[in-house]
Design a protein around this nucleic acid. Structure first.
Lengths: 239, 239
DNA sequence: CGGGGTATTGAGCCTAGTCAAGCCCAGTGG
DNA sequence: CCACTGGGCTTGACTAGGCTCAATACCCCG
């Protein structure tokens, strides 16, 4: 259902009828993955790009010593590997975090869109550009923020991103990450992730039981994380 | 001189005569900056994008506690902020590392290119996509590599990127970074950067005196860094 | 009831941060 | 020519944040 894509793009700029039709006419087929399954692997040369419909997906890289770093987390509505249209060879892998559903769009069709719809093309390119902006924010965190602040920042980011696609509200959302995955995203060990999260709990900033996370003090969480959503580029402006 | 841009794009795919002309006809004006000068600041809404002609530029972000993280380093030939064409508001700052020269291209003209030259447009979008790929590689490093491996990796990356634009050869190149900047890029303190670099020197992997860096043992440096240039997407293929 | 994955807690260690001092070198001004 | 200054590099000593190993508890599910 690329209608999810339309809704997502329209958060950032209006689309014309023709552009919406062009999206709706994209021949997509859907596919489901279960948690832990790889969707695309490093070294692959995909002929399709994937739109995440339901569930969570991460990008990751492994190191020889067994270390693994989660490079990005994706929420429903994200075009998770549009970049493979131009970059050809995958430089990282994509994995389903939990059960998820994906719409597969052939590169060939996307290329046709780029030939006929310049503005829509720009709108599609927003997605990898915002991914890059999020990468930069994570770089700042991994380089300079404390483990606690990084955890707080990730929670702020996920809450914000889930809110705009209607999957979070009232400071509550379903967080399908194990502490191990959280640790892999934050660049720390699982043990330390546990302690960092407990610090947030003890400071009464969050509750997190099973997979439901509740933010108990948004302002303090934002302050601790130095979270500023500017990097998510949520403004609706002509692009 | 956008001819530098043409040369750079042609590393990754051929351009037609018309496409080259379209680039050459871009009205650019040049500007020089001295080391430490900001080129664009976080929060700005630029109406131009910048092509780096000479010198080095970094992207960076500051934290309230005074910490600063360098998010990316750019070498001559890089289109350093094409993303501002779509993202409108800068989510980070750009600073000249040393004296540098820049070609300024109005967004309006670039937009016209995207309307008329789909393939050239895709080629231009390569630049921020490769930036994102480099971001991901740095994320892996900041999250999981040791300080020494990170330093080694940065050296491998810079050598590779400078080689393809003719600014490095025979395992030697001009490295205009102070150890403080190196530390800010690697996400460590200046003191620790010093010790990490000395470790590389003592292991006879590199020499680094003044601003000339010599790689004494490429293979070992690559092995220590687990450097694989796949993420630089250097293949020349139809895009 | 048993097993696997996940969360929690403690103990000891090590990487990297902080603070501080000294060094070298280039540039400046007397 | 020399004293002075400031920036970058180097080193030492101490501290702290985060890692590893290990044991225990927990919970879901079969």
């Amino acid at each position: 259902m690329p209608s999810r894509l339309i809704k997502n793009l329209e958060l950032r700029d209006d689309l014309s009828i023709e552009e919406k039709n062009a999206i709706l006419e994209l021949p997509v087929y859907e596919k489901s993955f279960s948690g832990g399954e790889d969707i695309v692997r490093i070294g692959d040369e995909p002929e399709n790009s994937n739109l995440l419909l339901d569930g969570f997906v991460c990008r990751y890289r492994d190191l020889e010593n067994g270390g693994r770093q989660i490079l990005a987390l994706h929420v429903p509505g994200d075009f998770i590997d549009l970049q493979s249209l131009l970059l050809k060879v995958m430089d990282h892998s994509l994995q389903a975090v939990g059960p998820c559903r994906i719409a597969i769009v052939p590169h060939e069709k996307l290329k046709r869109v780029t030939a006929n719809f310049p503005h829509l093309t720009r709108m599609l390119w927003l997605s990898p550009l915002i991914d890059a902006a999020i990468h930069r924010e994570w770089l700042l965190g991994l380089g300079r923020r404390s483990a606690r602040a990084r955890a707080a920042h990730l929670i702020c980011e996920l809450y914000t991103r889930l809110s705009i696609v209607g999957l979070a509200s009232n400071y509550r959302f379903a967080l399908p990450l194990s502490q191990r995955l959280m640790a892999e995203a934050l660049g720390i060990s699982a043990v330390h992730a546990n302690r960092s999260i407990q610090a947030l709990r003890n400071a009464k900033l969050i509750d997190w039981e099973l997979d439901r996370l509740t933010i108990r003090n948004w302002d303090q969480l934002v302050a601790l994380a130095e979270f500023d959503p500017i990097y998510l580029h949520l403004e609706k402006v002509p692009r």
